[in-house]
């Protein structure tokens, strides 16, 4: 017993808790990164980053991402998942659209491609001159887009980036939800249909409550991905975007550590990022509970 619990615990402490503690300690120093840590400065680094307009901007961008990306991705992938499983023909057995297995495979493709590759490919698609998107738009007669910088305009940079993130992730979450819906008894959907529930009604009042654990997990994972977002941002806009409109905390952390050699400050940013992530996860739990998770749970068992 002691071995089975003790060893993992030891590994957990050594590889997870210890670095956390270390990073927190570094965040209280003026460490430059290339010598032994020195110069205890208390909470100065935290005061600095919270009065640093660039970091606050990055934090705001992360908040935008964490609100928009999970919501859009989950709504889209849930809709697709229902279409592929229970929203097919309304006569006969409850089933998905014809050929749904093909759609399932196709929409999973983007997830099989590494994020960095997706970022670079879309960077080229968005390229103002000679990019696929502007080529397509100008061919349709929208000449205003002849050299429109999708990633270089403050109005579109964030939107264009969010689109790519959603595009990359929607397939995976669709497959996750398909599996979850498959786990629900078909009779439930049949009963709903006999009672006269339409496709939308079924999705909202039957499907979502029955797979809410999966939705919650998906929400948290997507939220973490949105709070990180480093790979997509670094691939599409390594400089932080026009007027820092796509800069995220992880990029600012990286920049502070590796180009400005302010590792103490970068550690403080890491601690803040960790706390924001934990706060986000806690918020999702609370919201899930308030919207009636226990009740649904009770219904099911």
């Amino acid at each position: 017993m002691a071995v089975f619990l003790g060893l993992p615990l030891l590994i957990y402490v050594g590889l997870v808790l210890w670095p956390f503690g270390q990073a927190f300690y570094y965040s209280l120093t003026a460490w430059s990164g290339f010598s032994p840590p020195k110069g205890f400065v208390g909470l100065d680094n935290y005061a600095r980053i919270f009065s640093d307009a660039t970091f606050l901007r990055a934090m705001r961008n992360n908040v935008i991402l964490v609100v928009v990306v999970p919501l859009v991705t989950i709504v889209l992938s849930l809709a697709l998942a229902s279409v592929l499983t229970v929203s097919g023909s309304s006569t006969g057995e409850v089933r998905g659209l014809r050929g749904s297995s093909l759609y399932r495979v196709v929409s999973f493709f983007p997830y099989a491609v590494p994020a960095i590759v997706i970022g670079l490919i879309w960077g080229m698609v968005y390229n103002p001159r000679g990019g696929l998107l502007n080529g397509f738009l100008t061919a349709l007669g929208f000449d205003a887009f002849a050299a429109f910088p999708w990633l270089g305009d403050t109005d579109t940079a964030m939107g264009a980036t969010i689109f790519v993130m959603v595009w990359a992730m929607v397939g995976f979450y669709m497959v996750l939800f398909v599996a979850a819906i498959r786990g629900v008894d078909k009779e439930v959907f049949e009963a709903a249909r006999l009672d006269g529930a339409g496709r939308f009604r079924t999705a909202v009042t039957i499907t979502v409550p029955l797979i809410r654990d999966n939705v919650q997990t998906a929400y948290i994972y997507l939220g973490i991905a949105a709070l990180d977002a480093f790979v997509f941002m670094q691939a599409m806009n390594p400089t932080g975007g026009p007027d820092n409109s796509t800069l995220v905390m992880a990029q600012e952390l990286f920049r502070t550590a590796f180009t400005q050699n302010r590792w103490g400050e970068a550690s403080a940013m890491g601690v803040v990022l960790a706390l924001v992530t934990l706060a986000f996860a806690a918020l999702v739990f609370v919201v899930n509970r308030l919207t009636g998770a226990e009740k649904d749970e009770g219904k099911r068992t």
Binding site: L15, P19, Q22, L253, L273
Partner: peptide
Amino acid sequence: AMVPVGGALASCAG
């Protein structure tokens, strides 16, 4: 939730 953060922080260890 803590995994990516741990990764980011652990790389700061020296």
